[in-house]
Amino acid sequence: MKARKAETVSGLHSINRRKSPRALLGSVLLVFALGACSSANRGISISTKDLNAEQRKALQQELSIDVFTARGFLGGSEYERYYLGDSILWRECGNISSKRSSETPADSLEGDQFLKEDQNLKIRERRVEQMPERAEQNLKLMALKLIDREERDDSQTPPPGPFYSLADPGMIEIKIGLGSKHRILITSVDAVADKANAPLADMHTLFSVIRGVGPTICDSKTFFGISRSRI
């Protein structure tokens, strides 16, 4: 009688797996890596016991953040851009070849025109990351803080500057959407890097958290004094 149909034998048997030392070591390392990866990806929710009602509400709201920053150096100008929405972070960096044009996007805007409305932006690298839950929650609280400050008109930030030479202070534009609230914050890169006052320090923290998600892009660990923070 052939055992060609699905059949089984009663009784359970434990599997005695034998592995070579190399395979075992590989397994241990892989399991360790997976564990590290898993916890980083899933994140850990932040404790809400120390939060006020408004902060707890903010954690439940949809967050979108769009950051564009550019600054000049000896060899030209560099830019970075980030867009966070649906818990996905789109990242892009590159160079600005010459003065930015003021042309608006074409009518037939298509997917490959991501951030290319200004044809002077030359993309060097683009990545997309799943936003870690804990980092996103922290960003929501930071966003709330920045929005509140704006509402109180408590933001004392210098204006943005040009970004075509080393002497230019550069510009950074952060668009925040939290629930129904939307704000646009614009200042210079150098001001954010210097963190001379509380609003600038908050912008610095928010931007460095966004920069810290995923691997480094364009080999740029810091963007003119703004580093990558891990949460």
């Binding site: 052939k2 034998v9 048997h13």
Partner: peptide, 15 residues
């Protein structure tokens, strides 16, 4: 999950 039941080996008898 626990280890699966052990399957019956293939049998070619009579072929």
């Amino acid at each position: 999950l626990p280890e699966p039941e052990s399957p019956e080996p293939w049998d070619n008898l009579g072929t």
